[in-house]
Simulated assay, not measured.
Amino acid sequence: MIRAAFRWLLAVFYAAAGYFHLANPEPFLTITPEWVPWPAAVIWWTGIAEIAGAVGLAQPFSAPLKRYAAIGLALYAVCVFPANINHFAMDLARKDSGAGLVYHIPRMVAQPIIVWLALWAGEVLDWPFARRTKST
């Protein structure tokens, strides 16, 4: 029950994020590292990936599709981490410190949690909630 609630929460979160990547790519383009080729296309495809992952997570009757979507979203979160680091560095280099540490530190800490949450909610892994079996 709790796992399903988190799966739906992630699906809504990623669907909204995907929508914003497509509807207003400019904020995402400003934090994309310079070494990323074709940044506008990358932002567009990340929006598509988020929406596709959200749809996959929301599938109530397809366990394999949920798992594939969860793995895809976890990999996606790993792949966009350089943009988050770049945003952090760009903000802290500003005279006004941008959003500041109060915004960026929780965001950095949340990234691996989001990777784990996608895998757990998508039933790819049970850790740390796996049931223990008694051995005789």
Rank of each mutant, 00 (worst) to 15 (best):
Leu101Pro: 00
Leu9Phe: 10
Leu75Asp: 04
Ala70Thr: 07
Val12Gln: 07
Gly100Met: 02
Pro27Ser: 11
Asp126Met: 08
Phe6Glu: 03
Ala11Met: 04
Thr32Ser: 10
Phe61Ala: 13
Glu34Gln: 15
Lys134Gly: 11
Gly72Glu: 08
Pro112Lys: 02
Val42Pro: 05
Met108Cys: 00
Phe13Cys: 03
Ala41Cys: 08
Val78Ile: 15
Gln111Thr: 06
Pro112Tyr: 02
Phe13Arg: 06
Gly122Gln: 07
Ile43Asp: 15
Asp91Ser: 09
Ala23Gly: 10
Leu119Ser: 04
Leu10Cys: 11
Leu22Tyr: 09
Pro60Met: 09
Tyr76Gly: 06
His21Asp: 12
Gly98Glu: 04
Ala15Asp: 07
Val115Pro: 03
Ala41Tyr: 12
Ala118Ser: 13
Ile85Trp: 11
Val42Asp: 06
His104Trp: 13
Ser97Phe: 10
Pro112Trp: 01
Ala70Lys: 07
Pro64Leu: 07
Met108Tyr: 01
Leu125Glu: 10
Ala89Cys: 03
Ala121Cys: 05
Pro25Arg: 12
Tyr68Asp: 00
Leu65Trp: 11
Ala54Pro: 13
Cys79Gln: 05
Met108Leu: 13
Ala41Gln: 15
Asp126Cys: 14
Asn84Pro: 00
Trp44Phe: 15
Ala58Pro: 09
Thr133Trp: 14
Arg94Cys: 00
Leu117Asp: 03
Thr30Met: 10
Ala15Cys: 08
Arg132Trp: 15
Tyr14Leu: 10
Ser135Asp: 09
Phe13Glu: 09
Ile85Gly: 01
Asn86Tyr: 12
Pro60Ser: 14
Glu26Cys: 00
Ala54Ile: 08
Tyr14Val: 01
Tyr76Cys: 01
Thr136Gly: 14
Leu101Glu: 03
Trp38Gly: 06
Ser135Thr: 15
Arg131Pro: 01
Val36Tyr: 03
Pro82Asp: 03
Val102Thr: 05
Pro106Ser: 00
Leu92Val: 00
Val124Leu: 12
Trp38Met: 11
Met90Gly: 07
Met108Pro: 00
Arg3Cys: 01
Val12Leu: 15
Gly100Gln: 03
Val115Glu: 04
Leu29Thr: 15
Lys66Asp: 00
Asn86Val: 01
Asn86Lys: 05
Ala63Thr: 10
Pro39Ala: 11
Ile105Glu: 01
Cys79Asn: 09
